[in-house]
Amino acid sequence: MRIDDPEVMAEVRAVFDRYEAALMANRTAELDAIFWADPRTVRFGIAEILYGHDAIRAFRASVTAYAQRTQRQVRITAFGADVAATHLEYERIGTGLVGRETKIMARIPGQGWRVVSAHVSLLAGGDPGRVMGEAR
């Protein structure tokens, strides 16, 4: 298995960027299309637990706007040609709240890259007191 193949990384980054743009503009049809249309898809959000694409789609339909955010750090790791994990540390504009978002993406035959699992959370106290690993 090749880790972080540059071509795969570029493909995943393109989907990541497309998702971010759609989220900030609340383009629900595009957000829905990026998620795997399957009952096994999971999304754990700030205040919701969603099992299955239908539940995710229903949640998206109920949202009128998403809190705007700036990206603080993005990490992507590709595992072979068909699986990747994306990690985003972000800050909600005007609030100082720091959030984290992890997406597991898989290349689905005949569909391309899709999010199969996502987890979003906010730090209760805002900025993390300590960041382990490489300096930002």
Rank of each mutant, 00 (worst) to 15 (best):
F59D: 06
G125K: 09
M1K: 11
L123S: 09
W113L: 00
T70A: 07
E11L: 04
G80N: 11
F59C: 07
M105R: 08
L31P: 00
V131R: 14
R60T: 04
R107Y: 06
A106M: 14
V115A: 01
T70H: 10
G94H: 04
G94Q: 04
R100V: 15
A78L: 09
D54W: 02
T64G: 04
G126N: 13
F16C: 02
R13D: 09
T70P: 00
Q73S: 13
A106G: 12
R75W: 04
D32T: 00
M9L: 14
A85H: 12
N26P: 08
A33Y: 09
E11Q: 15
G126S: 06
Q73C: 05
F79E: 04
Q73M: 03
R136V: 14
E89S: 13
G110A: 09
G129M: 05
E48R: 04
I56A: 02
P109N: 13
F16N: 10
I104E: 07
A25T: 09
Q71F: 08
E101A: 02
S117E: 09
L122V: 10
D17V: 01
T95H: 01
G110T: 11
L123D: 11
L122C: 01
Y66F: 13
D127P: 02
Y51H: 14
I108Y: 08
I46T: 15
R2Q: 14
G52P: 04
R69Y: 13
A22D: 05
R107H: 15
A14N: 06
I104Q: 08
A84T: 11
A85T: 14
E20F: 03
H87C: 12
T41D: 09
S117Y: 08
V8W: 08
G99L: 10
I108M: 09
E20A: 12
L97P: 00
D54H: 05
V15D: 07
T64W: 10
R130G: 02
